[in-house]
Design a protein around this nucleic acid. Sequence first.
DNA 1: CTGCAGGCCCTTA
DNA 2: TAAGGGCCTGCA
Length: 258
Amino acid sequence: MIIHNDNLDLEQIANSGQCFRWLKLNDKEWKFPICDFWYRAWHDENNHSIIYIKKENGQEINEKLVNDYFDINTDYRLIIEKLPQNDFYLKNAANNFSGIRILQQNLWEVIVSFIISQNNNIPRIKKSIEKLCSAVDGRFPMPNEILNMDLSDKGLGYRDKYITDSCDYYINRIQSMHTPISRENLLEIRGVGNKVADCICLFGLHNLEVCPIDTWMKKIINTRYGGVKPNWMKSEYAGVFQQYVFAYERSLAFNRTK
DNA sequence: CTGCAGGCCCTTA
DNA sequence: TAAGGGCCTGCA
C-alpha cells in the first residue's frame, strides 16, 4: 500500500509520545500495530511524501483501516494554515514538526497506556505495556484478560490498581454505553485525572480541540508565553498545535543535553 | 547517593 | 478551591 501525504513523518509520529508500541527496525523502517496486526512502513528514498506500508503477515491490507489509523482524511496542512500568524514560536514548531498527525488508535489501549504514563518515564511506560502484551501473544490485552493476569511483574508500581479499576469500568460502563464517551466518564476511573483524561480524549477519541496540559506545556506557558495560557490552546485544533510545540520543545531540550 | 519522569489520590484548611 | 505529602520503579 502506498500513501502520498506531505504531512506524515514516521519518525516524528513515533517520537510524538502518543503511541508506545512503535518499533524502529532500522534507519528507515518502522513497525507498528493496528487492530491486532503488525505493519511495517518506510518513506520513499527520493520523495519523503511517499510512504510504503505492508502487513507483517503478508496478507492484503485493508486500506481504509490504515487510512483511518493515520487520519488521512484530515488535512493537516489546512490546520497549520489556521494557526495564529503572529505567533512565531508556534509557527516555527509547526514548520519543524509538520509530519506529526493524531493517530486514531484503539480507545482501550489508549486508556491503559496513559494511566500507566502518569508520573512515569517513557522507557518504563513502554516496558510495562510490552509486558502486558507479551502475556497475550503480543497483541494488546482486553480488559477481562488483564483482570486474569498477575500484574505484579509488569512494572506498573502503584498504578496496578488503577488498571484493574479501568478494566472494571470498561466492561461495566464503556462497552455498553449508547452515548459517546465523555471526559466526565473517563474522570470516574480511579487513576484518571485531568491530564490523562485529556490525553484519552485527544488520542483515543480524536477530539482535536483537547490540549493536554502536562509538565512540558506548563513549562512552555511559563517560558514562552509569560505564564499566560495562549488562546490557541483553547482553539479548534489545540490538540494538534500542542503536539507541535511539545515535540519542538523536547527537541530543543534534547539538543541542549547533547 | 538524590532527584525526578508527560500525575493522581487523599487529606487539610 | 488550593496546597502538600506520598506513591512504584528505573535511570541520570
